[in-house]
Amino acid sequence: MEGYYEDGSSSKNKDLWVRVANEVLPVGKKLRAANLRLVVCKLCDKTIEMTLHATRECPKVHKLFQISGMDVFLPSDPFNSGLQWLEESRNVVDKKQFTFLIVLIWNGWNRRNKWVHEN
């Protein structure tokens, strides 16, 4: 299938992983720096929306990990960046689980965007 890798993951999932790892998602903190909007997370209205918050720490996003059962496998330590979290997660889960994690993050990011942009 076009756009998919051997392990079944899509190029969109890999792109999101790279964006999370490099802290380049257009989250509130980055948008505020560009004077485009406030920095508070639009999903939980509780904290500054940084990449790690938007993809892992937001209570609404974390619910995806709980529902999927992935929260049991993922490290719960505090992390300084999306890259640090992804690297540690990759070390504690197998390849299939890590691909599933990336798919969950991608779905969470899409749902967040729908909520923020389409309400």
Rank of each mutant, 00 (worst) to 15 (best):
A34P: 07
E49I: 00
W106L: 10
N119C: 11
L16C: 04
A34G: 08
G3M: 04
V72P: 10
P59R: 11
K114D: 12
V72W: 02
N91W: 01
D94W: 04
C58N: 06
V39T: 09
L52I: 08
G82V: 07
R37Y: 05
P59Y: 01
K29D: 15
F65G: 05
F73V: 05
K46N: 15
L104M: 06
E49N: 02
F65L: 05
L38Y: 15
N80K: 04
W109C: 05
C41V: 12
F79S: 11
S10A: 06
V72R: 05
V103H: 10
G82M: 02
E23A: 10
E57C: 11
G108P: 07
P78H: 06
Q66M: 11
A33I: 15
P59W: 00
N13I: 01
N107W: 10
V61T: 09
M50Q: 15
D45S: 12
A34Y: 15
K30I: 04
A33S: 12
H62Y: 09
L101W: 03
I67R: 14
G3N: 04
W106G: 03
K60E: 09
D7A: 05
W115S: 14
P59T: 04
E118H: 14
C58F: 00
N110R: 03
L83K: 00
E88H: 13
N35R: 08
S76I: 12
P78L: 05
P78T: 01
D45I: 09
S9Y: 01
E2N: 02
H62T: 13
V103G: 14
K114I: 15
L86S: 02
K12T: 08
N35D: 10
R37P: 12
Q97M: 06
P75C: 12
V93G: 01
K42N: 14
T55Y: 09
V40A: 07
E6T: 06
I105T: 04
R112M: 06
V27E: 13
E118K: 15
W115D: 08
N35Y: 15
S9R: 07
V24S: 13
Y4L: 08
L86E: 00
L101V: 01
E49Q: 10
L104H: 08
Q66A: 10
E87W: 09
I105K: 00
S68G: 09
G8Y: 04
N113P: 08
R112G: 08
E2C: 02
L104T: 00
D77G: 08
P75R: 07
V27R: 13
K29L: 11
C41W: 10
T47H: 03
V27M: 15
C44P: 01
K42C: 14
D45P: 03
K46E: 15
M70H: 08
V72G: 09
C44G: 07
K14S: 07
V20N: 03
I102Y: 01
S11I: 10
E49F: 01
V27L: 12
R112L: 05
R37M: 13
R37H: 02
A54H: 07
V116T: 13
E6N: 02
I105Q: 06
N80V: 01
N35E: 12
V20K: 03
N113Y: 02
V61A: 14
F98M: 00
D45W: 00
S9K: 02
L36S: 11
C44Q: 06
L101C: 04
V39E: 15
L86K: 02
R19S: 09
I48T: 12
K95W: 00
Y5R: 14
A54N: 03
P78C: 03
Q97L: 05
M50I: 06
L101A: 02
N13K: 02
N22C: 04
K14I: 07
Y5L: 10
